[in-house]
Structure formats: C-alpha cells, structure tokens
Design a protein around this nucleic acid. Sequence first.
DNA 1: AAACCGGGGGG
DNA 2: CCCCCAGGTTT
Length: 340
Amino acid sequence: MSDFGRQIIDWYKENKRVLPWRSTQEPYRIWLSEIILQQTRVAQGLSYYERFVKEFPQVEDLANASEQEVLKLWQGLGYYSRARNLHFAAKQVVEDFGGVFPRDYKSIKSLKGVGDYTAAAIASFAFHLPHPVVDGNVYRLLSRYFNDDTPIDTTQGKKQFQAYADELMLTDEIADFNQAMMEMGAIVCTPKNPSCETCPLQNSCSALKEGSQLELPIKAKKVKVQDRFLHYIVVDANGYYLQQRDDKGIWRNMFEFPLIESQKEEEDISVLAKKEGFEILGSPLYETKHILSHQKLHVKFWKAKADEAVLEKYIQVDHLEDHAIPRVIDRFLEEMMEKV
DNA sequence: AAACCGGGGGG
DNA sequence: CCCCCAGGTTT
C-alpha cells in the first residue's frame, strides 16, 4: 500500500516551479536542459539554457557550430566536457539518426554525454517511456524514505536505489513521477534543512520516524584536494597573447595566458619565467584562489615583457569574445577593467 | 572500481 | 568555511 507515487505527484502538481524545459516536449530542448543541469543548480543553468535555445534553435544548428562557439557559450558553467559532448552528440543525431532525435532508451543513451540518468529523463519527459530517473535528489529522497544507509557512491548502492525507483514508479504518469521525485529533493527533501513538517511523505518516511534524515544519504568515498600553483604571464602589449590548453586535464581546449606552474608556493617565478623567455615586471597584478571540486588553484597574474621571437609562439588576439577562457581568468580581466 | 572533470551559492 | 548540486567518461 505504497502511496509514494500518488502522493509526490499530487504534491508536485500543486508546488512545481515553472521552468522553460517543462513546457516543451521537444527532445532536443529536454536533452539540452538535462546536460546543462548535470551537477548544476537550476538558478545557475537557466540563463545558459535560454541562450543555447536562442543561438541553436534546432539540433542541426548546434551540429553545424564549431566546438569553440559551443565552448564560448558554455563559458563559466564548468565541467566543459559537457559542452564538447553536447556538440559531439548533436552531430551524432544528424549523422547517425538523420537529424531525428532517437526515441528509444538505448539509442538515446548512445549519445555522447548521456548516461543512465539523462537517458531516463529524456525517455520519460519526451516520450513517456517507463524509465525512472535516479539522480542526486532521488538518492537523497529514497535513502531517507527507506532509511537506507547503503552508500550511494558504490555499485551496490546504485543498483539498490535503482531497484527502489523501478519498484515505485507509476508507469502511466512517468513524466510527472520523475519530475516529482526530483522536485521533492530540490524543494522539500533538501540536504541541510529538509521540510519534514510539510512533506507529503511525513507519515510513511522511515528516516523521519527514526530521526535519521540528516545523516542520509551516506557516501563512502572522500575527495582529496590537490594544491596547484599557477602563474599567468600577462604581456604588456596591444591585445592579448594566449595559448590553447591541450586535450587533457582541466579546461581542455580552452584559452589562457602563457602559464608557468610551480610545485611550491614560494618558488622564484622570475627564474622560471626567464627560462621561457619572459621578464617579470614587479609584483603580481592580481592573486586569487580558485576552488574546484578536486583541486585548489593558487593563481597569480604577472606583468611581463618578452622578445618578438618568444611572442611568436603565442596567439595574439585583440579581444577575447571568440575564445573560451576559464572563469578565473575572466574574473582577473573584470578586476583589471575596474581599476582602469 | 577509481580517477577525473568547474563553478557557484547556501548555510 | 564546508558541502554539494537535475552525472558521465576514461582508465
């Protein structure tokens, strides 16, 4: 006598937020929104969604763009592999599926950047196929509903919570069921201050009964953060001298100032810069810490000069509108503009 | 199974 | 300051 699905769907219909991707059944737009929203809050992704739809109204428009155009529009959102995969997948739709978005779960999942969660979201929202979504919100909601302390970041945990969702889903209202689970996780069953007193599941939630809701879900692994020391060389000249990052590590294929990375905080940057042909002028123009999920970047920007023979190795641009750059460099440029 | 991949905002 | 978010790919 599980009323789980009925209760969350009824709650959802009364409490759902109005969001642009909820008022369309176009698979292209639903897919786009899902990629943007991976590991990203609605408030942060909203403006990016609007800009992508405006710039690339159809999947063909996205497929015909250059990777740099896509990265540039993605700039500031992070996890840039999503943008490259999005672009790649748009070309898959055009070339492998004749420009028609695939309509079955397996084909949807064959698109680059589309895993179990995203395939289930597209399949259910666009085509009403009975695939429950299991994302961070759902792990939290179900681990609490069943008071289950199986770690969610293990193979066993993924199978366990997928099985719960398979059992609970209402197949003939799958789109609302899936939206309801995620909206519950986003609005009611939140990580820190869940609204248990207004929750539609308060009479059947096992964690609330045990008072364990704040301890769930359990994660087994702990992330270790690596410290890195980045020194960007800003050559004092007309325009900017840039280099393109290679195809591995953070910020793949994006643009940056000439970079010197030191192993320790206190290394003599002038000496390291000299080896690359740059003469450092004065103290750092700007320094900051840039925190990623797995790296802590200690970033300094140095004014420098160099011979023409050295500068030849870099890309000279007058303005940066056509180049995707990391947020930390963008922020440095904003900082410099204010001082002028 | 583990490593890797950004940036922002809430508390 | 810490936590974690509408995850997926590569190794």
